[in-house]
Design a protein around this nucleic acid. Structure first.
Lengths: 339, 339
DNA sequence: TGTACGAAATAAAACGTTTTCGTCCAAAAT
DNA sequence: ATTTTGGACGAAAACGTTTTATTTCGTACA
């Protein structure tokens, strides 16, 4: 059996409570005994039992992370891996561990909320979820502190990628390269999608360009196959767009495939732009022009916000943290203004 | 405050112990009261407290996963995302949750083992670690059940990708395409590396081909930049190999870059082969010829083994589970035998 | 009629902590 | 000399369960 605080108290010849206080830095214990306890603890290899401690203090130092999508494994997309990495690093440095939350307990189907309550997590990060789901709404409006990534709540902590700015930057660039017929593909409806789509429309208006409804098409995030299909359709419209903004880098690969299959070259015949800027994409040829979201920083900010909320629940809710990204100029956009 | 078993006992007018037994399917409680308890539990929304339960039973239904690499975020490589996905799905279906384990507790640096003890995980999956580290050795030889992925232990549960067979299959294919000067790049020393490297040598001998020492080079896993450098060097050897087997798909991208920079075409001038077959790689052009490891199944098998070990600790240790992969024939290997 | 038995329920200890409150005692203050 | 103070420590309750041992009670059996 593991060595308990009682063993330690015996070894030191003082009461259990004194030991506990010594270990936890309480003031009402002499410096001398504190040192004695610490030394003895190291000697016999005492480790506090997190379970017992949590039971008593109502604090587990455990953070739940919810990560789902249709495929039930969002980690296939490196972007979420990066997100989780940043979140985790920050959380760990603050003494929190991470538990992956799903919706069953034992083998019974259960809500995320119930699962979180069951596991007594101190807080939850909604990293990749469909925010319109009832289950998620229930979770968000529960008593458990939570932070949302890439979804705006007016009364909740959240951190957003600067989607509007990302699309603006891409549009500016593409426009500056002489493109005027710019197609836009957007993902399933969400906050993110809304922000990006409206930024597209704004920019088109700013540039005084007409929007061809056929060139604004709904597709899917992170699906090469859907993207491939949708780009195929797009290529058959007349006039054909000179440039396509894809929902993300992953989808862009599908688009590129469709374009190649149609016998067109990138960027000579048609230009392509991605979104996300995950590292892998930067290694392929032709290097994709895209907007790099700083997933690591987003994850980190989420952890900071969540832990702050946990540690002082009554702090005023700050406006969403907006994490900037940056343009990555690759080789997939042709300069139409070249002589 | 959450509703406890005591509230439930009051509501039903029976003792706490009777309620506990009713809930946990003990035989010495009448069917009638059991139903009454269950109904009341649903009514007042009773959820057992996992902490209290675990404290008493010494079982947390929590599995630790260790995932590290030099970059401190192995999730950047989708392969590990896939692994984790498979592991997680199986674990969850059996009632276990997953906690990510690192090596600090609070903000003190600690060993993995101590962290696992502190969190009272029921078992550990070593998913991505350097097995020669003292810390890992300590963990593996501790009292906590564990399973290793892609590392062979004679006296421990482990699941292996069929690395030997993977390299064999690739070699057979490449040989059948007429390649005779086949370079091999291998990653940092490990079980996996050993298996692959020896399979390479075996095949070379089987084919009665001389091994050019300059063409067998140590590189790194999952590092495009290292791969790029190392391939650069490889291209300067004379004679130049006609085909290069890379450590993994990710590295292959680095290799491809180096080759392109050298002004060579793939596969016309030189052929390239990867390893892993993660989905993303399949979407790029030219489609990489590679060996697909079934990461999802590997993860799943790991969970199965681990949980079996946890649930009956004295079961004999089975030989390693070896998970087969399959060839993915792409467009990066030229057929030298074409007329 | 007395005993034995089994089913159903309960009491209580335990798991390993934290924390409130109380006690003790020496030193300082009156 | 008495009271006050405060520093150092201890006793014990509590957190929400599980589980062992015990009690209760009705029924079957000798």
């Amino acid at each position: 059996m593991a060595v308990t605080i009682r063993d330690l108290s015996k070894k030191c010849g003082i009461s259990v409570s004194a030991v506990s206080k010594a270990l936890n830095g309480y003031p009402d214990v002499s410096e001398e005994t504190r040192e004695r306890v610490l030394k003895a603890a190291a000697e016999i290899g005492y480790r506090p039992n997190a379970l017992a401690r949590a039971l008593k203090t109502n604090k587990t130092y455990n953070l739940g992370v919810i990560l789902v999508d249709e495929l039930h494994n969002s980690l296939l997309h490196t972007f979420f891996g990066v997100l989780l990495g940043g979140f985790r690093r920050e959380a760990e440095s603050r003494g929190y561990d991470i538990t992956l939350i799903n919706h069953n307990i034992g083998n019974r189907e259960e809500s995320y909320l119930n699962h979180c309550r069951y596991r007594n997590v101190d807080g939850i990060c909604l990293m990749c979820v469909e925010f319109q789901m009832m289950e998620i709404q229930e979770l968000v409006s529960s008593e458990i502190p939570s932070v949302a990534i890439d979804h705006f709540f007016s009364n909740k902590d959240c951190v957003l990628s600067d989607n509007r700015e990302g699309v603006r930057a891409l549009m500016d660039y593409v426009y500056s390269m002489g493109h005027r017929d710019i197609a836009f593909m957007y993902g399933t409806p969400s906050n993110v999608t809304d922000a990006r789509l409206s930024a597209y429309y704004e920019k088109m208006r700013e540039f005084k360009l007409p929007v061809n409804p056929e060139h604004v098409v709904q597709s899917h995030y992170h699906s090469t196959s859907h993207a491939q299909q949708d780009v195929q359709a797009l290529l058959n419209t007349t006039p054909r767009p000179t440039c396509i903004l894809m929902t993300d880098d992953y989808s862009a690969l599908g688009g590129i495939t469709a374009i190649n299959q149609a016998g067109l070259r990138i960027p000579e015949d048609i230009s392509v732009v991605g979104y996300d800027g995950t590292s892998l994409i930067q290694k392929i040829h032709p290097r994709l022009t895209t907007y790099r979201q700083d997933g690591d920083e987003i994850g980190r900010q989420a952890a900071i916000r969540l832990i702050n909320r946990i540690e002082n629940p009554d702090a005023p809710i700050l406006p969403p943290a907006v994490v900037e990204g940056r343009m990555l100029i690759g080789e997939t956009v042709k300069n139409l203004e070249e002589i």
